[in-house]
Structure formats: C-alpha cells, structure tokens
Design a protein around this nucleic acid. Sequence first.
DNA 1: AGATTAAAAGACATTTTTATCCTTTTTATG
DNA 2: CATAAAAAGGATAAAAATGTCTTTTAATCT
Lengths: 143, 143
Amino acid sequence: MLSNSSKYAIKGVLYLALNSDEDHKVMVRDMHGVVHVPEAYLAKLLQELSRHGVISSTRGPRGGFFLSKEDRKRSLMDIVKVIDGEKRVKSCVLGVKDCDTDQPCVLHKLVGANKSKFIKVLENTTILDLIEGKRDVEEFFPV
Amino acid sequence: MLSNSSKYAIKGVLYLALNSDEDHKVMVRDMHGVVHVPEAYLAKLLQELSRHGVISSTRGPRGGFFLSKEDRKRSLMDIVKVIDGEKRVKSCVLGVKDCDTDQPCVLHKLVGANKSKFIKVLENTTILDLIEGKRDVEEFFPV
DNA sequence: AGATTAAAAGACATTTTTATCCTTTTTATG
DNA sequence: CATAAAAAGGATAAAAATGTCTTTTAATCT
Ligand code: FES
Ligand code: FES
C-alpha cells in the first residue's frame, strides 16, 4: 500500500499539525518518540518534505519543523508523492505500469474501483481534514 | 499494494492456469518471456509456491510446473500469503500492526472499507474465477 | 561579534527485496 | 541402466529501502 517511509512521514506531519505552528516549532528530538519513528530517519524524511515545500522549517535556536496555514491545506498525496513517488501507489495490481482503465489487467474490474477510490482519498484529504477538532490524539500514531 | 514478487507469482500462476494441466506441464524457460519475469527469479517463486502446495510440479523429462484441478481452486490470497505474508497486505495504512477496527487509526474510516474490500477480493477470487472462458489472453501479463 | 542551537546535507551502514548462477537431486524414457 | 531433462537448493550479487552518523549552514541569543 504505502511504504514505511510514507507512513512515517504522514505521522510526522500529523504530529506537526497537532503540535506546531509558526511560532511553536518542533524539534525532531521532541517528536520521534510519540510517532514511533527513529529520530534520525524521521529527521531525514521531514527534511525531504521541507525541501519540497510540503512542510516548513527554520534552523537555529527556537527553530524546528512546523506547518504553516498553507501547509495544512496539503493533501496526503502531496506527502506520498515526495516520499514514494506517485508511480508506486498508482501502479497496476499486476504490473509496474500505471493502472490503466483503457488497458485493464484481468484484476482491474475486481479492484480498480477500490484502487482509484483509495487514491482519491489520498488526493482529496488534507491535513486539516484529519485533525480538525482534535488535539494530542495518540491514536494518530500507531506503531 | 503487493510486492513485485507477488505480482510476478500471480502472473506466473495465471499463465499455468491458461497453459498447463496434469499432462501438459510447463517449463519456466517457456513462460518467463510471456509473463515478463526474469527466468531464474520466476523459477524461485514457483518453487516456493510448489513447496507450499499452492501449485504443482514434477522434475525430470517432460516435467515442469502445472496446476491441478485442486490448485485452480486456490485464491489469490493463497499466493500472496506465501510470497509476501498476510501481514504485509493487512497492515494498517499508518502502521505496521494489522489494520484494526477496534483501534482504528485516523485514516481508517476513510480507507478501511476499501482495504477490507481489496483483501476480500484476494481471498474470494480463485484462479478459476479469473480465467474461466479465456485462453491465451496476453492482457493477463502486463509489464 | 561570538557562542550556541537546530535543521540541512551528505556520507556511511544495515536490511530487505530483487535477481543470477551453479550444483544437486529427481525422474521419464530410450 | 544410462542419459538427459527438469525442478530444487544454495551461494552470491545487485539494487532499493531503511537507518545512523558527522559535518555544514543558518538563525538566535548573549
Ligand atoms: S490495470 Fe491492473 S489494476 Fe488497473
Ligand atoms: S487501523 Fe489504520 S487503516 Fe485500519
């Protein structure tokens, strides 16, 4: 479905959504325990997301990672695209090519609808959608 | 979704379903081109399936891999279980634990239904279901 | 300005997945 | 029984995913 790295990245971003903003930045050191991701690895993933403009960060004292207002409107697919690439999640169940309705594989009629629904969820669900009304919800960060 | 190995394995089994039976066994040498899988690697995967009783094989002259009547009633999940393990496909979208309706992650209500539907397709679709009425269908073997 | 802090960057290590090659064992058949 | 054909098995290798460590850069605070 999604790589571990993408799962990690999503959990990291959700943590930032719940616990950070422009003037409350979060260090990786303080979050990796809660989201159950190795510190250095989470740092790397967040750096990657930041470099691609999906999340925000500043260096130095009082620095850290955080989500701007804009960042919160990002979709889950924006995260997955950076970490896994779109190709991986859109590939055909039996092949490596993109799932293709014009040249459907033998399994397509059985699972194609499901697949595209899943992709639509990733594309249409924003960080904001997931956290609205919630604070410090530990169930966001399963092992 | 599924590992490449599982995709390979499924395509291999489908080829056998279309082109083999008890007295028309198929050598890996003759099928790897059609299903687009490296010869030695496909051999390994089929051996693994055979060892677990999901497909059949005999050695020696006029030997090869084939599907018995019984083998054809196997589900796709039987294949995936051998190659990837059940855990991988059933794991939560955000974690490594099994997707758990009792302790759903924040994404579960958005994708959980899809996931279980996909799993049900794997569990309830037999090889026979996929090939009935069809012969030598190249669209079974996407790249 | 200088010291300190934290991310950025990139080198390095490990593990898993994917893939190849070579030898051994089994078996049908002449 | 000899032979050849085919899977089985093991050793190895290449690539990708996962994970760690060290150095560099930038921001902040004294
Ligand atoms: S073409 Fe194979 S799943 Fe859509
Ligand atoms: S618990 Fe996470 S997808 Fe079901």
